[in-house]
């Protein structure tokens, strides 16, 4: 697998308003090439909006978004999106869903990515006969076949059962490590954020209220004390009205504790 293809994504004072509703006030966020960022926050805080901005599906009301130093305008062709509902075309077989929009001879490549997500034997099936987890794996294959520099994931595992979700997290991590795309994952599951991300970003009141590096070695273990500490810290931060400083202090505390 080739490496180092991830895009750099920079939000500069991005604000987004829908009518009178100010959803994002001021987002400043730099995502380094190949970095895995998890975005968390209360429901309705604007996580999906942030992702849609990065995909070029929405335009910022003010501020700008840069992709590898270039101002993003219009659809972001370097990006692929995975949605919570897999959004497979029900009238196309699995393999044709994976090859959607591709030109030339893509069949072989489609089989390869289906192998990577463990579904090569389902290539000829209709999406309707797949389970939720399998559908998301097809959606992942479809996202990755064009080798995107940026993968945007909007709660892609939110509707899956716990076991399938853990399997999918491992799969996403593995493929990310192999292919080194930049990843932006929106999730409501703090466990998942800590499991996968290099940095966890909390959105609150339309701003990045917290930007916390996760320095645990991979593959990460849920049972790990440091892991649990970090999850706990973030959860308490989301639920409380504590000031940012205290949280940063708490988080570095937990990191120290892990180091000991």
């Amino acid at each position: 697998m080739e490496t180092g293809r991830g895009a750099e994504l920079v939000f500069v004072q991005v604000a987004k308003q829908f009518g009178d509703q100010q959803v994002l006030r001021r987002i400043d966020l730099t995502v380094k090439p190949g970095e895995f960022i998890a975005i968390i926050g209360r429901s309705g805080c604007g996580k999906s909006t942030l992702l849609r901005l990065a995909a070029g599906l929405e335009t910022p009301t003010s501020g700008m978004i840069q992709l590898d130093g270039q101002l993003l305008h219009g659809l972001n062709t370097a990006a692929r999106v995975m949605f919570q509902d897999a959004r497979l075309l029900p009238w196309r077989r699995v393999i044709d869903n994976v090859g959607l929009g591709l030109k030339g001879d893509w069949k072989e490549q489609a089989i390869t990515v289906l192998e990577q997500v463990g579904l090569a034997d389902r290539a000829k099936d209709w999406p309707s006969v797949l389970s939720g987890g399998q559908r998301q794996r097809v959606a992942l294959a479809r996202a990755l076949i064009s080798r995107p520099q940026l993968l945007l994931l909007d709660e892609p595992l939110g509707a899956l059962d716990a076991l399938t979700r853990i399997e999918m997290q491992r799969l996403i991590e593995r493929l990310w490590r192999e292919q080194r795309f930049t990843a932006l994952l929106v999730t409501h599951d703090v466990d998942e954020a800590v499991m996968l991300a290099d940095r966890v970003v909390l959105i609150e009141d339309g701003e990045c209220a917290l930007d916390l590096p996760v320095r645990l070695p991979r593959p990460r273990q849920r049972g790990d004390a440091a892991f649990a500490d970090l999850v706990d810290t973030i959860l308490r931060r989301i639920l409380s009205t504590e000031s940012d400083e205290k949280v940063i202090a708490a988080s570095s505390m937990s990191e120290k504790r892990r180091a000991l």
Partner: peptide, 27 residues
Amino acid sequence: VDAGLLEMGRVYGLRPWQLFWRIWLPG
């Protein structure tokens, strides 16, 4: 026709006539 599918089609680079043949019409 499911607006989510249309949006997905746009993100996945379908041109307008491809959107029509692959999503609008079968939908």
